[in-house]
Design a protein around this nucleic acid. Structure first.
Length: 641
RNA sequence: GCACCUGUAGCUCAGUUGGAUAGAGCAUCUGGCUUCGAACCAGAGGGCCGGGGGUUCGAGUCCCUCCGGGUGCACCA
């Protein structure tokens, strides 16, 4: 509601400017520093002062007089230090919300948006860095879907890369296990933990390079026992990852796999296009002689000769970036090739998750890719490579798609020194000197996602048990799980994407202050009130505009209603800036506002019937909007807390 | 060397396309449970927004410069 009134006011002012002053200027609105100034502040007079050769207060005054009483929903226009401040008609505003009249137009019916996130190498357990990626991506997806955008979620699986090869080498060369033994092991719980340890052991061994080469060769040819083992390992680990992510409410539509990109020769098509468009050329001299390279000028300003990027090595094999360009083309439906698919699993909510396969045999008739815009959730360290991929699209003659290829980047999750000590992690002298320590799969340095979730559940369980011993164990476990997920998701979402998270276990395990559980608690309290009210009155019949205006004359009640109504405005800003943290922040602030309301007003004890109805309506409206917000954040509201 | 990110309260971080008196959580101190349960609320202290220059009616926000952190710049993925 806030959003639409905001826009209609800004339109009305713009029209007035155009007809009366004959100037066309964009009219921006902002939130006044103090709520006593009204609901909206327009700095428009400052912007026009020079053009109109008039002092800002005079312009604002003329606007206020000229527009007085002419904008629906506006009670007053005031001038203060050059600003044009707007006061809403509180009764009108509340009644419109109550009637559900809110012409919120979403971004409009456009094509499909593809979001790729998670993308964990299937050779070890997921750690908290992977969680930041997945939670960021999943939340962004939920936010866009809430706006009515059609979104497809992809999780790319590099099941033929060096990381998988290293683990396979570990099984074969170090542990001397047969494929059958590995297959048996892969069926055991926490196989991903086993591989975590094995991988860090193998990756640090002298002989790894030779083993890796031999294993990779086998995997790429698709023949031999090592290749078979590679599939067993990768498939089992992918299963572990999907389970871990499901604990956090994260689901995928499709898992495109590297193995199919190889078998279906996606690269060959891409290579032909790149050559035909002269986006790459065969280098004949210098250090890159014999390689197909993309000139540095394609993705970098003032590029020198040495900035060229090798796409095809002199031995004829394609680099990672080359494959990524092919994959990106496929995402936009520009490759001229497609995968086949089979269903990998059905989530408990019935939603299916598909995986790519290389032949039509047994394939299901579903279709993925061909998006209009693509968001790749990848950490900021890969921005150079993402630039090269976008440059590839441009060079192929797809400037629009290049523009709609968004590198949704974020900074890494590192570990605070205190947490490293708590976890008993061995640190090098170099690491000890730093303010945070980067995680490393190779070194086995990191906090595993499932361990953290388990710890959070354990902690939540203690709190729940101490407060609700009367509830049965199954119910308490469910509540504890919801709280744990709320704490974790909020913790990883409250930082903006550009901020490095120095993960601190004690902070992450906290349920007080700016945390997920705090927000959940506010929602639970609202639900508790509503439960005790029982059957809700028919608000539309019970609450006249007059009653609403009367009750909302109380400043803090009005401020709460305003905060509640700001959701769409905040969501729009959070989506367009690609910053889920903005929505998380809003959820917290809204919860704070309600907590104060909860403390200051006794809804059930309110003697005046009309006023009581307004308070109940506000509580109900708050609960709905906060639940909507939490749903976008992937945080559930427990039955009790 | 070049490119990108970053420096805001003791700590961890917000701060809308430049706007009115710079905010929150944690920590510290002080108060508040009579079941809409305190995973809460109220209050206090705590800031030359890294330094300097510039643009502007107006700068935490934009530009330049210096200082301090981080990341990237492979025929690795």
């Amino acid at each position: 509601m806030f959003h639409s009134l905001e826009r209609s006011i800004s339109r009305a002012v713009a029209n007035h400017l155009s007809t009366v002053f004959s100037v066309d200027a964009p009219v921006t609105t902002e939130q006044p520093k103090q709520s006593s100034f009204g609901e909206l502040a327009l700095p428009v007079a400052f912007q026009l002062a020079r053009q109109l050769r008039k002092a800002p207060p005079l312009i604002a005054r003329e606007l206020a007089d000229g527009l007085a009483g002419k904008i629906e929903g506006v009670a007053a226009l005031e001038v203060a230090s050059g600003y044009l401040n707007v006061r809403f008609d509180r009764g009108w505003f509340a009644r419109r919300i109550l009637d559900g009249i809110d012409a919120e137009a979403g971004p409009g019916a456009s094509g499909k948006t593809i979001v790729e996130h998670t993308n964990i190498n299937p050779n070890k357990a997921a750690h908290i860095g992977h969680l930041r990626n997945a939670i960021l991506g999943d939340t962004f997806v939920r936010m866009m879907r809430a706006q009515g955008v059609s979104v497809e979620v992809q999780n790319y699986i590099d099941n033929t890369g060096v990381q998988v090869a290293d683990v396979v080498a570990g099984f074969h060369f170090v542990e001397k296990k047969s494929p059958a033994e590995v297959a048996a092991l892969a069926r055991q719980p926490r196989f991903d933990y086993y591989c975590w340890d094995l991988y860090s052991r193998v990756a640090q061994m002298e002989q790894v390079k030779g083993w890796r080469a031999e294993t990779l060769h086998s995997i790429e040819s698709g023949e031999g026992e090592l290749a078979a083992m590679g599939h067993v390992v990768a498939d089992a680990i992918v299963d572990c990852h999907l389970n871990t992510m499901l604990r956090l409410g994260i689901e995928y539509d499709v898992l495109p796999r590297e193995s199919e990109i190889l078998h279906l020769k996606f690269w060959a098509s891409c290579f032909e296009q790149l050559k035909a468009r002269k986006a790459i050329y065969l280098e004949t001299e210098g250090k890159n002689a014999g390689c197909w390279v993309m000139p540095g000028a394609a993705f970098k300003e003032n590029a020198a000769e040495e900035d060229s990027k090798v796409i095809v090595r002199s031995n004829g094999t394609v680099t990672y970036v080359g494959k990524d360009i092919a994959y990106q083309l496929w995402k936009f439906g520009l490759l001229g090739k497609d995968f086949f698919y089979r269903q990998l699993r059905a989530y408990p909510d019935g939603h299916p998750c598909y995986v790519s396969q290389s032949s039509a045999e047994g394939a299901e008739t579903v279709s993925f890719g061909g998006g209009e815009s693509v968001y790749n959730v990848i950490d900021s360290r890969q921005s150079y490579l993402q630039d090269v991929v976008a440059a590839g699209l441009r060079a192929l003659g797809y400037p629009d798609q290049a523009r709609r290829s968004v590198h949704f980047s974020y900074e890494m999750v590192a570990l605070s020194p205190r947490t490293c000590v708590e976890l008993g992690l061995e640190l090098s002298e170099e690491d000890k000197a730093k303010s945070y320590v980067e995680m490393s799969g190779r070194k086995g340095l990191g906090v595993k996602a499932d361990d953290l979730i388990d710890q959070l559940i354990e902690r939540a369980r203690i709190e729940v048990d101490s407060r609700h011993a009367d509830q049965d164990a199954g119910s308490r476990a469910g509540v504890a799980a919801a709280i744990a997920v709320g704490a974790l998701r909020y913790f990883l979402l409250k930082f903006t994407r550009t901020s490095v998270i120095a993960f601190d276990l004690q902070e992450a395990l906290s349920f007080e202050g700016e945390t997920g559980p705090y927000v959940q608690y506010a929602a639970v309290r609202a639900r508790n009130i509503l439960r005790k009210v029982g059957d809700l009155p028919d608000f539309r019949a019970a609450l006249s505009e007059e009653t609403l205006r009367e009750v909302l004359a109380t400043e803090d009640l009005w401020q709460l209603l305003l905060d509640i109504s700001r959701l769409d405005s905040v969501l729009a800003a959070a989506v367009s800036s690609g910053e889920p943290a903005a929505l998380a922040k809003y959820a917290f602030q809204l919860a704070q506002a309600f907590s104060r309301f909860y403390h200051d007003y006794r809804v059930l004890d309110e003697p005046d019937a009309g006023r009581r109805n307004v308070l109940i309506w506000m509580t109900e409206h708050f609960a709905r909007q906060l639940e909507r917000t939490l749903h976008m954040l992937g945080i559930a509201v427990p039955e009790y807390m």
